[in-house]
């Protein structure tokens, strides 16, 4: 554990809770892509199956359970409890376009040809692109509420901080995980455009608007 990794995890937890709290307090899922949330739930379920057979630390276990339960809760709120407020008409990104390539990539790049390692690889690739339905939705509606922007910023920062963590771990312990690093870089690049808009608009008190 190093400071970058810890800050990344804090940012990740913050993102998850910003989203849950926003939906809960406004009693609305407007502007949130249910499809992205389903993809994130698949990511956590596929990656954290090792909960049952490998124990790393209490911190690790608690975080894994937290991400699985929070993402399931988010999906439940969007598709069941506040279904009437969910903007399904604008949430039209075809998730098979990210599910199928992630699965194929997992079969090509993995650390061993076992079910759990394939699931792990798949989850890493899927996580990199799971935000696409949400970004697509923001582009389609042309704007995002400020809290949604904060959520996206925290979620994007998490993987960017992990990149610093990987650089640090490479120099201090020789740890190098090419699959996570490559996917993590792609994931961070996807947020760059958003980061720019966030800094130039949201942080200056304006609403995030995308030009058509």
């Amino acid at each position: 554990m190093n400071l970058f990794r810890l800050m990344g995890d804090v940012s990740h937890v913050l993102a998850v809770f910003i989203l849950l709290a926003k939906i809960w307090r406004t009693r609305s899922a407007a502007g949130i892509s249910g499809r992205s949330q389903i993809l994130f739930t698949i990511v956590y379920l596929a990656r954290y199956m090792d909960l049952f057979f490998s124990f790393i630390s209490l911190y690790n276990t608690v975080m894994k359970l937290l991400f699985i339960s929070a993402s399931c809760a988010t999906v439940y709120l969007i598709y069941f409890k506040f279904r009437a407020t969910y903007d399904g008409n604008h949430d039209t990104f075809r998730i098979e376009f990210v599910l199928v390539p992630s699965l194929l990539l997992a079969f090509i790049f993995h650390y061993s040809m076992s079910f759990f390692e394939l699931a792990w690889s798949f989850s890493i690739f899927l996580e990199a692109v799971a935000i696409l339905p949400q970004l697509f939705m923001v582009t389609k509606t042309g704007e995002a509420e400020n809290i949604t922007s904060h959520y996206l910023f925290a979620l994007g920062s998490y993987r960017a901080l992990y990149i610093l963590n990987w650089i640090y771990r490479y120099y201090t312990e020789g740890h190098f995980d090419p699959i996570a690093v490559c996917a993590g870089i792609v994931q961070t690049i996807l947020y760059c455009d958003f980061f720019y808009l966030y800094v130039t608009k949201v942080l200056q008190g304006r609403k995030l608007q995308v030009l058509p």
Binding site: H12, D50, N60, E117, W120, N165, H175, F176, D177, P178
Partner: peptide, 10 residues
């Protein structure tokens, strides 16, 4: 052995 057969990150 795989470089990361033991996944210790989230």
């Amino acid at each position: 052995k795989a470089p990361n057969s033991f996944h210790d990150e989230l």
